[in-house]
Simulated assay, not measured.
Amino acid sequence: MNKNFSTTQFVWGVSFFLALFVNFPIIFLQLPRLQKSHIAQLDIVIQIFVSLIYAVFFIQLVYRNSKANTPKIRHSFEILLLLVAYVTVLSTLNILVIGLSVKMIPSVIIRGVSIAGLAYYFSKFLIETDLKNEILLENEQLKTENLLVQLTSLKNQLNPHFLFNSLNTLSWLINEDKEKSQRYLQKLSQVLRYSLSMQEQSLVPLKEELALVDSYIFLLQIRFGNNLQIIKTIENMQFKIPPLSLQLLIENAIKHNVISTASPLSVWIELRDNVLIVRNTHKPKPNSEGTGIGLVNLNERFKILAGREVEIEQNEQEFKVVLPLIPE
């Protein structure tokens, strides 16, 4: 069922209940006269209808102001204004249409205050329910984003190109340097194991993420040699970060930039003022424009988990991404 439709049903249903509840004494007193007097019928219709509209507007006012973080003074003034409007309209109809005395105005005020008190309670219930639904929706969105990032990472690692390059490098190392080939195999298994083990994690300690980066850097530098330089400047490890964030940014830098002896690629990973800055030299390959899905997914994860978006800056010399960190 549509969320807005459900909210509307709730507001009107509760408002109708409140209109009947506060006007029950009048309805009870008029019951003996209902069949004989049109005035009695009109009296009940007017009391219920005006109270119903008042309750609907009251609940919607409290709900809207809460969502908009309206200042308390303005919020209180609007509630008072609505109460005055209710008392004025209903009292005027009672006097001019029903022919009642001005002595019934205190009764109208009491009913208006009663509806306001009860409607305020139901408004808060509606606001809390809406907040819970938003949290559930964000959690589901986060799970989806995590799965997409994990799937993308696994596809990048387990695709034929990655395995071919890794196994080709390993085969060469076995013949050239058996000791280094064993280290290479160990680092490769660490990268794959980490990726598989992070499927259920939303956040990981920065220390663990950097351990993965170290293994990943080892694999890359065996392949690219001195043509790829990755420099880390991180002293404080007391933070958390969405898993595979740094690997994604390093992959992007390698995928979209030229790496050669004439044009080496440098990547810097630096911690400054509770943010992680990942920047690289910008020498794009011809026709290397990507879809940008990886960065979009990464931004969504940080927006939900850290409450801040990822900052991206680019110029002719450098591409920079700023990741907000979450203190442990």
Rank of each mutant, 00 (worst) to 15 (best):
F5C: 10
F17R: 06
L18W: 02
L18S: 15
N23L: 08
F28R: 14
P32V: 04
H38W: 15
D43H: 14
I44R: 01
I44K: 04
I48E: 07
Y54S: 07
F57T: 00
I59A: 02
I59C: 01
Q60H: 06
Y63W: 14
Y63P: 01
R74Y: 05
R74P: 03
S76M: 05
I79L: 15
L82F: 05
L83I: 10
Y86D: 00
V87E: 07
L93R: 03
G99Q: 07
S101T: 02
K103M: 12
I105L: 04
S107K: 12
R111L: 03
R111C: 01
E128P: 00
N133G: 06
E134D: 12
I135N: 07
I135K: 13
L136P: 06
E138C: 07
E140S: 05
T144K: 10
V149Y: 00
L151S: 14
T152C: 02
K155A: 11
P160N: 12
W172G: 05
I174T: 15
N175C: 09
E179D: 10
K180Q: 14
K180R: 14
S189H: 08
Y194L: 05
E200C: 04
Q201C: 07
V204N: 03
P205I: 14
K207E: 15
E209Y: 01
A211N: 14
D214M: 01
L220Q: 12
F224Y: 14
F224H: 09
G225V: 05
L228H: 03
L228A: 04
L228T: 04
I230W: 01
K232N: 04
K232C: 07
T233N: 15
P242K: 07
P242G: 09
P243I: 08
L244R: 01
Q247Y: 11
L248V: 09
L249G: 02
K255G: 01
V258Q: 06
S266P: 00
W268N: 13
E270D: 15
E270I: 15
R272C: 05
R272A: 12
R272D: 15
D273M: 07
K283V: 14
P286H: 06
S288A: 15
E289C: 07
I293T: 09
V296S: 10
N299M: 03
R301W: 00
L305Y: 04
Q314W: 09
V321L: 04
L325G: 05
